[in-house]
Design a protein around this nucleic acid. Structure first.
Length: 566
RNA sequence: UGGCGAGUGGCCUAACGGUAAGGCACCUGACUCUGGAUCAGGGGAUUGAAGGUUCGAAUCCUUCCUCGCCAGCCA
């Protein structure tokens, strides 16, 4: 996994655009319904966080921050067969990296198992829950359909005593998995299927990451979530749309249990991105079947993947803020994410020279063995970033793309007889082209104008193009991985076989790239701009002397657009 | 089909009965030692449809259409 660091805290006083949830919260504060707002982010530790979670995290923690309230991190660990400590650790690290802090408020639904059990007993006592001996198949078969009511279980009217006894024995581990469940006694004919005597507890003889073998029965999500919220005095329990149909059950349980507070569940639309799959199940498939390098593959929409790719936390936060919160299903163009990332990187990333597809240039009239140090700004957008010295010599690498033997109409770069500027160095003119037997250009011969040192011509000559370059003798060779969208289709989720839609070109590995020497010591995880090419982040696969860079995102490329238009 | 929810330019989102706003994308131009950045400007919406209420409707009412979610002992 990528190395983890903590970023600067999320902007406490960023001007927030409002949304329907913040409106509700503001009204609850205004009316005096609440004086302190408490939210919670409730991940299940069964996978890695993705950009969709970032939206929820920014909402939950953001509202707490804006209102001077608090946001709890609560792991929804009610299903030990799927959950692991590894995920708990990764999730905490991801949230910290994103710049959010839960302070002392780290909780686990499993912390409440004893209380939850007591409440289940309470429900049995009041005749609102019963132990059902039916099998899972029988329960499914008698639940009814969307249009037909369900059929009551033959065990629905057991005595309170018998229910109490059976439930205690379920807890004691007397019965095998699947042999019995505790069900709420609500309404088998409810038009809302979630209210047709939902299962509250199931028997699971599994070791839980936190409670070990203390429990043989585990509460279902529905029986844990609302009560956990109530225990923690959560005021606004924000979740995604698919829980809308569960809200009546959420409320029913709170109505029938002596809970200490009354939280309110509000649902919003989850985030979807074009050219991306977002479900944990889908992401797990990509990882397990080896379609990507892992959960932190730079093409993954996971926080870990985006971090490895070089997306700054600020960019992720900006992006979700830009997208907003609403109830309409949506699928956001990835371009918006890229815009947000590019926008912060433009302000913060240092510039460097790197030649990805090198072609040799020999400055014929430049003294052999001479080396000059050219002063280059580290970030034109930020003068405080200073400058660095870049060695210039007789033999250089430039980008193969930056030369055309027969220049196309709007091509401004190097061509035979044409003069261009080498960034922060000299104006050079191409006077010769050397080809191999196959006719491929292997070297360019140029002359330079000594009067233009630094890049300015005393006579005011202004070449139409400025090229980046790397001194051949000082270059460090590297591998560079170019990333694009994992899926060709804008909406791969709608496809029968999304895997077949994976773009084999979504990762292109370039070797033999030539980097400016200063890049050799760049720490892993750092993102810089390769001038004129894009932003690149040093990948953890780097070895000493053998750096690997991942392309975070390209620069806006109008020339590419012109070319594409023909 | 039962219940619930949602439909506003290509994509997001706002407008909370007062005459459709903003971002992304797109197109022009200016500027530029990154064909980057920046700046200026532009095109593009009869607000899913049809009725109705109102001086006035994206907002209220009716009907219809489309899409999403729900029939795990997952969350």
């Amino acid at each position: 996994m990528t190395t983890q660091t903590t970023t600067e805290p999320a902007d406490a006083a960023a001007p927030e655009r409002s949304d329907f949830i913040r409106d509700i919260v503001a009204e609850d504060l205004r009316s005096g319904k609440h004086t302190t707002i408490v939210t919670r982010f409730p991940p299940e530790p069964n996978g890695y966080l993705h950009i969709g979670h970032v939206k929820a995290i920014a909402l939950d923690f953001g509202i707490a921050q804006e209102t001077g309230g608090r946001c709890h991190l609560r792991f929804d660990d009610t299903n030990p067969v799927k959950e692991e400590q590894e995920y708990i650790d990764a999730i905490e690290a991801d949230i910290r990296w994103l710049g959010f802090d839960w302070g002392e408020h780290l909780y686990f639904a499993s912390d409440y198992f004893e209380q939850l059990y007591a409440w289940a007993v309470e429900l049995i006592r009041t005749g609102l829950a019963y132990v059902d001996d039916q099998s899972a198949e029988e329960i499914r078969a008698t639940r009814g359909t969307l249009t037909e009511p369900g059929v009551a279980s033959p065990w629905r009217d057991r005595s309170v005593e018998e229910n109490l006894d059976l439930f205690a024995r379920m807890r004691a581990g007397e019965f095998p998995d699947g042999s019995r469940v505790l069900r709420a006694r609500i309404d088998m004919a409810s038009p809302n299927i979630n209210l047709r005597d939902p299962v509250l507890y199931r028997i699971l003889h599994t070791t839980h990451p936190r409670t070990g073998t203390d429990w043989r029965i585990y509460p279902m999500y529905d029986f844990a979530h609302g009560q956990s919220d109530a225990i923690e005095s959560v005021t606004h329990s924000l979740c995604t749309l698919e829980y809308e149909a569960h809200r009546p059950l959420y409320d029913w349980l709170l109505d029938h249990l002596p809970v200490p507070s009354r939280p309110r569940q509000i649902e919003f639309a989850r985030l979807n991105l074009t050219h991306t799959l977002m479900s944990k199940r889908a992401l797990r498939t990509l990882v397990q079947d080896g379609h990507v390098r892992g959960w932190d593959d730079p093409r993954m929409p996971t926080v870990a993947g985006m971090r490895r790719r070089g997306f700054p936390a600020q960019g992720l936060r900006d992006f979700v803020a830009m997208v907003g919160i609403a109830k309409a299903d949506n699928i956001i163009e990835v371009g918006m994410l890229e815009y947000a990332v590019r926008s912060v990187l433009n302000r913060t990333a240092q510039r460097r020279f790197a030649v990805l597809d090198p072609i040799k240039v020999v400055i014929e009239d430049y003294p052999e063995g001479q080396v000059e140090l050219m002063e280059v700004p580290n970030n034109p957008e930020d003068p405080t970033a200073g400058t660095r010295q870049v060695p210039f010599s007789r033999e250089l690498w430039i980008e193969r793309d930056d030369f055309m033997e027969e220049p196309a109409p709007k091509f401004f770069r190097l061509a035979p007889g044409r003069e261009v500027r080498l960034r922060a160095a000299y104006l050079v003119t191409c006077i010769g082209v050397i080809k191999d037997e196959s006719g491929r250009v292997v070297e360019l011969r140029c002359t330079y104008d000594p009067a233009t040192r630094g890049g300015d011509a005393p006579d005011g000559r202004r070449p139409k193009a400025t090229l980046h370059w790397v001194s051949a003798a000082h270059a460090v060779p590297a591998e560079v991985r170019l990333y694009g969208h994992l899926f060709r289709s804008a909406d791969p989720g709608a496809l029968d076989d999304p895997i077949a839609d994976i773009d084999p070109e979504s990762e292109r590995v370039l070797t033999g790239c030539q980097l400016e020497g200063s890049l050799a010591e760049l720490p892993v995880g750092e993102t810089v701009q390769f001038e004129r090419l894009g932003y690149f982040c040093k990948d953890p696969d780097s070895a000493s002397g053998a750096p690997v860079f991942d392309r975070t995102v390209t620069l806006k490329d109008t020339w590419a657009k012109v070319q594409a238009r023909g």
